[in-house]
Amino acid sequence: MATDPIIQIRDLSVRYHVARTGNRLIAVQDVDLDVMEGEFLTVLGPSGCGKTTVLNCVAGLLTPTTGTILAGGRPVTAPGPDRAVVFQDYALLPWRTVADNVRFGLEMQPRLKEGAADRIAEAIRLVGLSGFENSYPRELSGGMQQRAGLARSLVADPRILLMDEPLGAVDALTREVMRAELKRIIDATGKTVVFITHSIDEAVQLGDRIAVFSSHPGTIKEIVSVTPGNRDGLRDQLWKSLESDAVAAARGAAE
């Protein structure tokens, strides 16, 4: 272990104040997590266990109630150019074309003014959207919109990519294709990735390691490493590990 982790999460707890009921809800409790440079970490867990909450804290969008997060050795207090986020709902600006949406990923960083056009073209090429630069998001399929979202996250060359169920809203077939594409793109850029998913297959196929969350309170239950040999075994193991939690979460949601 020569290098320090690029992301260090220590004793992270987040409580939400629910204005409607006046209650405080413990969303995440005592999360410790290290992510190494260049690692692809997938995050699995039942709905509502606090995965998005943890990711938003790393992104700097949410301030933890207690605990610390270091990114690249520095405490996270706000979003920064070292971290980009890919959203489940794409979060593209509907009034901007693909190229202008991608530009949005770097236009608030004056240091990237020079050569911006080249960077944008390169990011669009990398995600396979060449020829759609002047299309508006509503003219694209869900898969293509997420490609645009991915290009926007890559254009400023952040060290860390935070992905919150990026393929959650695309259809099953596109999802398969995009999964392989994503792997290719990430491997080509060598970025550190934290990738939230509901799919065990996705977690196993993409991840170097998998952080498994459990709920009530939301915390990390186990962290498993993926090796080429143990993929199939892992699937079964993860399914068993998640089944009871998933059932409980679904029941909870139904009540």
């Binding site: 938003n56 992104a59 700097g60 969008l61 979003p79 150019p81 971290r83 980009a84 986020v85 959203f87 979060a91 600006l93 949005f104 990923g105 770097l106 608030m108 960083q109 926007r152 400023a156």
Partner: peptide, 8 residues
């Protein structure tokens, strides 16, 4: 949120 992430 996206705007804040990208530095707005």
């Amino acid at each position: 949120r996206a705007a804040r992430v990208y530095g707005a």
